[in-house]
Amino acid sequence: MSTPANPSSATPPAQEPAAVGGSAILAWLYVGIPLAWGVSQTFIKALALFK
């Protein structure tokens, strides 16, 4: 078996550049909204299994 694969040392969050800026939020919304819609439609369909 291999040893754990994490190749990095601990990364202090303060040293990261702004991980989520305004444009990143908009970008995530662009893909997140349709994905959330698709997931909700599937979830509603899946509820039939528990009725």
Partner: peptide, 25 residues
């Protein structure tokens, strides 16, 4: 609904297991 539920876990598994592999190897 069962097929839909499997689709959801197919999606979640892609993120969960792949992320876990960063720690587990």
């Amino acid at each position: 609904g069962f097929v839909g539920l499997l689709s959801l876990f197919n999606l979640l598994g892609r993120f969960f297991w792949s992320s876990a592999s960063d720690k587990l190897g």
